[in-house]
Simulated scan of single mutants.
Amino acid sequence: MIRKRIFAAFAATLVTAGVVTTAVVTGSEETAAIQPAAATVPAFDHIVLVMFENKKYSSINGSSSAPYFNTLASQSAKFTNSFAITHPSQPNYVALFSGGTQGVTDDSCPANLGSKPNLGRQLIDAGKTFTGYSEAMPSDGYTGCSSGTYRRKHNSWVDFSNVPAASNLRFSKFPTDFTQLPSVAFVTPDMCSDMHDCSIGTGDTWLKNKLDAYAQWAKTHNSLLIVTFDEDSGTSVNQIFTTFTGAHVKVGSYSESINHYTVLRTIEASHGLPGIGNAASKSPILDIWQ
């Protein structure tokens, strides 16, 4: 009992000091496995973020309808307290790309946001590269509001005049040679593949078929895949399913509260960029790296 109390006090002290501790029980003995959080986010060669639509955390986590999402999570850092910013969809896409909703409160199109700061412009100004890939977009550089199963409201980079048209590509241009990917890529599935108009199973199969090869490659090529959702199914909680898969990731479940601004801040930190907007007040995610 004394040993346990001493251990508990020791663990509490380390947590206060910013060190992650894990109790490992072996028979009647307790020992502390001390895992300091990383000092910085790894400087990834490539980060790919894919955003799905309108599903609450519990609809994906452990669901038989989402076998690949859960298989991928078992190879990843899975966040059990990840949240969107608001409802409906469009302001969440804008928030993740620019650190704020920029006054966007609905899905009306077009949202012309001028030259406000955003991740794409940050990367380009720093000598890095950014590309957004949208499934079902009819042509590269397209600025229209909709075409078939494509919707501009899910393509935040086209809203900013300081992001070049060359950064706005069809998903068919996503390279099969992953070394040709930009520093950061955002991927928007179409209205069916993203689960908005079609089933969870449809989106699950799409993710496996389109991005599993990259997820596996990323693990050994200093790269990262972020899978997340724009918002939940419309509840006030707005909890979403989010995973980070790739190099340097300590596989496991993580319970700290994060949101779209935290994810943006982590991407920025990987490239040595300052936080913009509401991301500036967020700390990058540090405890998932090894």
Rank of each mutant, 00 (worst) to 15 (best):
1 M>D: 08
2 I>L: 13
6 I>K: 07
6 I>M: 14
10 F>R: 06
12 A>S: 14
14 L>D: 05
19 V>D: 02
23 A>I: 00
24 V>P: 01
24 V>C: 01
25 V>T: 09
29 E>P: 00
30 E>S: 13
30 E>H: 09
33 A>E: 12
36 P>N: 04
40 T>G: 10
41 V>R: 04
42 P>S: 13
43 A>D: 08
43 A>H: 15
44 F>W: 09
45 D>G: 07
47 I>R: 06
48 V>W: 03
51 M>E: 11
52 F>P: 04
61 N>V: 00
62 G>W: 04
62 G>A: 05
62 G>R: 00
62 G>M: 06
66 A>C: 12
66 A>Q: 06
69 F>A: 05
71 T>S: 14
72 L>S: 08
72 L>F: 12
73 A>G: 10
74 S>K: 05
78 K>G: 01
83 F>C: 08
85 I>L: 06
86 T>P: 13
88 P>M: 11
90 Q>P: 01
90 Q>R: 11
96 L>I: 12
96 L>Q: 06
100 G>Q: 00
102 Q>R: 15
104 V>L: 13
104 V>S: 07
106 D>P: 12
108 S>H: 10
111 A>M: 13
114 G>S: 08
115 S>D: 13
115 S>I: 11
116 K>T: 10
116 K>P: 04
119 L>N: 05
119 L>V: 02
119 L>K: 03
120 G>C: 10
121 R>K: 15
129 T>H: 01
131 T>Q: 11
139 S>P: 04
140 D>N: 14
144 G>V: 13
150 Y>E: 04
150 Y>I: 12
150 Y>M: 14
151 R>D: 13
152 R>W: 02
153 K>L: 14
153 K>E: 15
153 K>H: 09
154 H>S: 15
159 D>Y: 15
163 V>A: 13
165 A>K: 10
166 A>V: 10
166 A>T: 15
167 S>K: 02
168 N>D: 13
173 K>N: 15
174 F>V: 11
175 P>T: 05
179 T>Q: 04
182 P>A: 10
184 V>A: 03
185 A>V: 04
187 V>Y: 09
190 D>V: 03
195 M>T: 15
197 D>K: 12
198 C>T: 11
202 T>Y: 10
205 T>N: 12
207 L>N: 13
211 L>R: 05
212 D>E: 08
217 W>L: 02
218 A>R: 02
219 K>E: 08
220 T>D: 12
220 T>Y: 00
224 L>S: 04
224 L>V: 01
226 I>F: 11
227 V>T: 07
231 E>H: 09
235 T>H: 11
239 Q>V: 03
239 Q>D: 15
240 I>G: 02
241 F>G: 00
243 T>G: 05
243 T>V: 14
244 F>C: 09
247 A>V: 09
247 A>C: 07
250 K>R: 12
253 S>C: 03
254 Y>L: 01
255 S>H: 03
256 E>G: 01
258 I>P: 02
259 N>G: 10
260 H>N: 12
261 Y>H: 03
261 Y>L: 05
263 V>Q: 09
264 L>R: 04
264 L>C: 02
266 T>N: 09
269 A>D: 09
270 S>I: 02
271 H>W: 04
272 G>V: 08
274 P>L: 06
278 N>K: 01
283 S>A: 11
285 I>G: 02
286 L>W: 04
